[in-house]
Amino acid sequence: MSNQETSKSVFLNVNGVSYPVTIDGGRNLLSVLRGEIGLTGTKEGCDDCECGACMVLVDGQPVNSCSYLAAQTQGREITTIEGVAPSPEEMDPLQTNILEAGGVQCGFCTPGMILSARALLERTPHPSEEEVRIGLSGNLCRCTGYARIVEAVQRTAAGAKTATGDTGQ
């Protein structure tokens, strides 16, 4: 293997778009998303794999992007908060519910919370409160006290239950 050139050109598939980036093998995914690709919805909190502000999905699984090497995600699908809403005019039910439940204060943890919640609901469509709390563990919030975030996830799950029915209301 060559030592001369450690920067490599790779393609990262983020929210369905393939981005060419030239990066060192040691660069973490968070810094590439924010610094190279310009998607700043993913936040840098502790930068130490503790707080969950940098959570993204890699092939549908939550990953702390601050501590995951960007080059390892080649060929995998990355989802960031920018890829959650179905269109620029429409929010994802998780986004609507977290706003309506009052689960957003400063907002710094929100992108990570939403991505962890999305992965949870994918895996467990109708989680108990305990399952929501476990699913969101690793995402710290210093404002809300969590209750309203948990409520928003449960509302989303309940909404999904009726969404297949005739009308929600």
């Binding site: 293997m1 060559s2 030592n3 050139e5 450690t6 920067s7 490599k8 060192d24 093998g25 040691g26 794999c49 702390n64 501590s67 995951y68 090497l69 080059a71 390892q72 080649q74």
Partner: peptide, 29 residues
């Protein structure tokens, strides 16, 4: 400090890289 990362697709490839001094990385945690 720069890092060269080889994404191994076979075990032999990974072992050869380690024989040349590379350290293995999985989840990076």
């Amino acid at each position: 400090m720069t890092t060269h990362l080889l994404v191994a697709t076979t075990l032999d490839e990974a072992l050869a890289a380690m024989a040349n001094g590379a350290r293995p990385i999985a989840g990076g945690t």
